[in-house]
Simulated scan of single mutants.
Amino acid sequence: MTTATMEPLPAPMPAPAPRPAREVYRDTLAGLLAQDERLTCLDSDTGLFSGVDWGAAAGRYINLGIAEQNMMGAAAGLARSGRIPYVNTMATFAATRAVEAVKLDIALNNLPVRIAATHAGLSAGHLGSTHHSLEDLAVMRLLPNMTVLVPADAAATEELVRASVDLPGPVYLRLGRGGTPDLGPDLPPLRIGEAQRLRDGDDVTLIATGPYPVLLALEAAAELAAHGIEAGVLNMHTVKPLDTEAVHAAARATRHIVTVEEHWAAGGLGSAVAETVAERGPGCRVSRVAVPDAFAAGHGGQTHLLERNGITREAIVDRVRAAR
């Protein structure tokens, strides 16, 4: 009697790595330039567009080198001439080094310049504090006329880039460096200026912005549900104009809001939500999960630095349970 030899089963194919939002932005923009002659791409020698075949739009890609202030001024001039410039640089340079030009050349004149800011938050954590961008939401949301967008995954990035083309006035688009997990299919529609409700709950509301904060809020909501606490989750992809009606509704319904962001605690989403709640009087507590008032500790990968600086699922859960 012979024994049949079993062929080993093939190893399962690994899941594809999530695409970095900045690459999704790049590819979406390249396609839009081919379709819309108003669009121009201004680059600060980021390397993001190396190898892109611009085709007939090649003359509308301009690499100005590492000169961010000049790039903002050039973008303002192009916008004044009827173009719609997309400006590419790292977030920390857009929000600090070039902010005078953004304020006076772009925002003051309410010009349709789109600032695509990569390496935001702690996503360039391996480069240290010089490249951490934990102030940009505070800076940009304070500028009159500015729209501030923070996509939570690759699909949202493409949607928001496309939606940004015909928005009035300037836009700040906050993007990370590496790939982050997708939120999944069958999400509610993404509309600029409207919070995206990802989960219902009438005990507490978690309001998050950005890829990892939104994912952590969803994970925290699942853990809280196991303890009998139902948490609603809002993806606040538009930090300005803030969906104040959604914030007020959450304040009335749950009486406790926890904000989650990859930003310093002062000036960002948490501050915007607290200001909004305060305008309608007392009755709702606002807790913030964010980087404390200190330069971010350590060097390393993004998830490592998020955990080291207190932006975790556990921190969200602790904030909720401490208030009950």
Score class of each variant (00 low, 15 high):
Ala30Ile: 03
Ala30Pro: 06
Gly31Met: 04
Gln35Ile: 00
Arg38Cys: 07
Leu39Val: 15
Leu39Pro: 09
Cys41Thr: 09
Leu42Phe: 11
Asp43Glu: 11
Thr46Ser: 02
Leu48Glu: 06
Leu48Val: 14
Phe49His: 12
Ser50Val: 11
Ser50Arg: 15
Gly51Trp: 09
Val52Lys: 07
Asp53Leu: 09
Gly55Thr: 10
Ala56Met: 03
Ala56Ile: 04
Ala57Glu: 08
Ala57Val: 09
Ala58Tyr: 10
Tyr61Leu: 13
Ile62Val: 14
Asn63Gly: 04
Asn63Glu: 06
Asn63Leu: 07
Leu64Lys: 08
Leu64Gln: 05
Gly65Val: 04
Gly65Met: 03
Gly65Thr: 01
Ile66Phe: 10
Ile66Trp: 09
Glu68Asp: 10
Gln69Leu: 07
Gln69Phe: 03
Asn70Lys: 08
Met71Leu: 14
Gly73Asp: 08
Ala74Thr: 14
Ala74Pro: 02
Ala75Lys: 00
Ala75His: 02
Gly77Pro: 07
Gly77Ile: 09
Leu78Glu: 13
Leu78Met: 15
Ala79Phe: 03
Arg80Asn: 13
Ser81Met: 13
Gly82Ala: 13
Gly82Trp: 13
Gly82Pro: 12
Arg83Gly: 02
Ile84Asp: 02
Val87Gly: 00
Asn88Asp: 09
Thr89Leu: 14
Ala91Leu: 01
Ala91Cys: 13
Ala91Lys: 01
Thr92Trp: 03
Phe93His: 04
Ala95Glu: 14
Thr96Arg: 03
Thr96Asp: 01
Arg97Cys: 14
Ala98Tyr: 01
Val99Glu: 01
Val99Ala: 02
Val99Leu: 12
Val99Ile: 15
Val99Cys: 05
Ala101Asn: 12
